[in-house]
């Protein structure tokens, strides 16, 4: 029963995906995704600690629990 529901859900999603794929869409989407990625990486660049190597090296913990 559960198995059947799962498969029917999966195939309907596949149809949706298949329906809205055409080449211009893909190109446009890729471009907007690239912009998106650049935006989040730019934002994260700004908050990353400045000297990565020293920062990572100096993070020394004692075991716990």
């Amino acid at each position: 029963m559960a198995q059947e529901q799962k498969h029917s859900r999966r195939s309907s999603e596949d149809e949706e995906i298949a329906a809205d794929v055409n080449e211009t869409d893909v190109a446009a989407r890729k471009e907007s995704l690239d912009d998106d990625v650049d935006a989040i990486l730019d934002e994260i660049d700004e908050v990353l600690e400045s000297n990565a190597e020293d920062f990572v090296k100096s993070f020394i913990q004692k075991g716990g629990e």
Binding site: V56, F59, I60, Q61, K62, G63, G64, E65
Partner: peptide, 8 residues
């Protein structure tokens, strides 16, 4: 800490 120590 990626240097051998773990805490839970």
């Amino acid at each position: 800490d990626n240097k051998g120590a773990s805490y839970g």
